[in-house]
Design a binder for these strands. Structure first.
Ligand SMILES: [Mn+2]
Ligand SMILES: [Mn+2]
Ligand SMILES: [Zn+2]
Ligand SMILES: [Zn+2]
Lengths: 145, 145
DNA sequence: TTGTTATTTTATAATTATTATAATATTGTA
DNA sequence: TACAATATTATAATAATTATAAAATAACAA
């Protein structure tokens, strides 16, 4: 596996040792925009990396989250935690039928973040902004059942 | 237990049978503003209602959430789900040290909600807006350790 | 009020996402 | 290359949540 210097330097900067497993997990989360769960990541990576264990996926995700390199979105109508490599505050839109999560642009998120940063008195680490409902595809399915 | 007609009518409107347990759970969540977990609710209610079971708390919370009467906030640095009786989109502020969640006013939340409602194409049921960091009290504790 | 039926509560067991452990393997470094 | 610190893996344990089914209760009609 050839080292991807983008990820390598990011991990090193955060004081995390570079391993093939961590590179694979981190870069998958950066490349795919689908806000996966630990198990979804595990299944994807296993195709190119058959010996990886689910424990390594959890360890890596926890480590990346602790250092602030990724964001923990929480549940999306299912019962496992979804992750997001985009740590800039932004609006996520979850479908509680198909459990997909997509990003959506909003011009108000930055203003809201600045407002909370300056007025709350909290030392902020991140934001979890998630609206939920039914996506267009799932609305059609339930209409024509 | 005397019936509280506010909650009674709300439950009836939602097609939910009125029971003392459900009244206790729903009104506790409305009265306390601390965004509790199922177990925290269970412990509180048990003081005046010694025979209640944790299963009833989960059943009721799931039912209220399904009907849109309460909001599911998700984890707050711990590993159990927090609930909120305030279903209007608003900013929640979680401390990842002490796991307390408080509300904070923001003038941008409503604008953001309207924006997403009109542009997303999703049939929206609710929002989970949660910023996380260290609260002032926990900042002081870690400074003077 | 009383009887009837559907629903709810409860105790209990089962499930499952996540974490802990400890032996083996790998990384960073000299 | 060799060493020490750290990571990975297989496995077992934990704990939040859900499933089940018998007993209790709410709604409602006679
Ligand atoms: Mn996102
Ligand atoms: Mn709130
Ligand atoms: Zn959908
Ligand atoms: Zn705190």
């Amino acid at each position: 596996m050839k080292p991807n210097h983008d990820f390598t330097s990011k991990l090193k900067q955060a004081g995390i040792r570079v391993t093939p497993q961590r590179m694979a997990i981190y870069s998958l989360l950066m490349d795919y925009k689908n806000h996966p769960t630990a198990f979804m990541i595990y299944e994807q990576i296993r195709e190119n990396f058959p010996s990886i264990s689910l424990m390594t996926v959890y360890n890596t995700l926890n480590m990346l989250a602790d250092r602030g390199l990724i964001n923990v979105l929480g549940h999306a109508g299912d019962d496992s935690v979804h992750y997001d490599a985009d740590i800039e505050p932004h609006v996520n839109l979850a479908c509680i039928s198909c459990h997909n999560i997509v990003d959506i642009n909003s011009k108000y998120v930055n203003q809201m973040t600045n407002e909370i940063n300056s007025t709350s008195g909290y030392q902020l680490f991140g934001a979890r902004v998630l609206f939920y409902g039914n996506c267009p595809a799932c609305q059609n399915q339930s209409r024509s059942h």
